[in-house]
Design a protein around this nucleic acid. Structure first.
Length: 282
DNA sequence: TCGCAGGGCCGGT
DNA sequence: ACCGGCCCTGCG
């Protein structure tokens, strides 16, 4: 294992939260995968022990994936605009946003539609175990997420065997779309509105999933994906009307957090979705 | 047990 | 611009 300094970084909440579905915790070790790599992380006395497989020692990848060079304390100051954000930061200190692979993020968030995080994880792991390459590590054999190419060659029935339900056809179609359009080679150098348009051209990608891809893979910091929890944040915390449309919600919170909506939203999301169920009084 | 909700989207009106 | 339906799983 390699060792680098680690400051203000909560691996648990960041890796095992709602932004990535390919991590598990084994004792005090975090094991994650993409479609190409296995990453092993362990925190130890303010240091990060890490290794990548099958290619070892890929420091550049780890630094970019974990976004280790973010001016984190500065960002935290910028988003503390009210009591709700403050409470969320207190409950999830040092929560971070990852920068994940574009195609992996797209394909796994396709699975998120009308689904629960637990079930999304289950489907992603089933896909890896059934159809992904295997990588041998000192921490055991790890299955990678199937490549985009592999997914295009699977049948709908094979995909459905991973508990994907109606999303199976979206995975196959969108994987094929990625191959046909080579979108991954172009997406990183496009204006925001064009990125969103390209993403939503794919089957199964609507405004919310497009926002997730832009925040968790493409590094857009001003966007807050507005799911059922985001809507609750707006209505319960900020007194906004129930009937706001998606774009109205996104614009409202984007303006409110002045360019840092992704960070603030991540705290508020974890905060509201894990809060104890309110007893329905009366 | 069973009814419902889950990091929404699609297709018909 | 609305809205019913959707595969399946986890949870109370």
């Amino acid at each position: 294992m390699n060792i680098i300094p680690l400051k203000n970084y909560n691996l648990e909440d960041t890796l095992i939260g709602g932004q990535s579905f390919t991590w598990r915790k084994d004792g005090d070790t975090y094991i994650g995968f993409t479609s190409k790599k296995v990453i092993v992380l362990k925190e130890n006395n303010g240091s990060l022990e890490w290794q990548t497989f099958p290619e070892n020692n890929d420091l550049d990848f780890v630094v970019e994936y974990l976004r280790l060079n973010e001016p984190y304390e500065e960002i935290m100051k910028e988003i503390q605009k009210d009591e709700y954000v403050e409470a969320a930061i207190k409950e999830f200190p040092n929560l971070r946003i990852l920068k994940q692979d574009f195609e992996l993020t797209l394909l796994t968030f396709l699975i998120s539609a009308n689904n629960s995080i637990k079930s999304i994880r289950r489907s992603v792991n089933l896909m890896a175990e059934k159809f992904g390459e295997k990588v041998q590590t000192p921490f055991g054999e790890v299955s990678l997420f199937p490549s985009t190419e592999t997914i295009t060659n699977l049948t709908i029935e094979e995909l459905r065997s991973c508990s994907l339900g109606f999303r199976a056809k979206y995975l196959k179609a969108s994987a094929q779309h990625l191959i046909d359009t080579k979108l991954s080679d172009r997406i990183h150098q496009m204006p925001e509105e064009e990125v969103r348009k390209e993403l939503m051209a794919m089957q199964g990608v609507g405004p919310k999933i497009a926002d997730c891809i832009m925040v968790f893979a493409l590094g857009y910091e001003s966007i807050t994906p507005m799911d059922v929890w985001g809507k609750r944040i707006l209505t319960e915390f900020y007194g906004q009307p129930e009937n706001m449309k998606y774009d109205e919600m996104r614009n409202w919170i984007k303006d409110y957090f002045e360019g840092k909506g992704a960070w603030a939203g991540q705290f508020l999301f974890e905060y509201i979705r894990t809060r104890p169920q309110k007893k329905l009084a009366k």
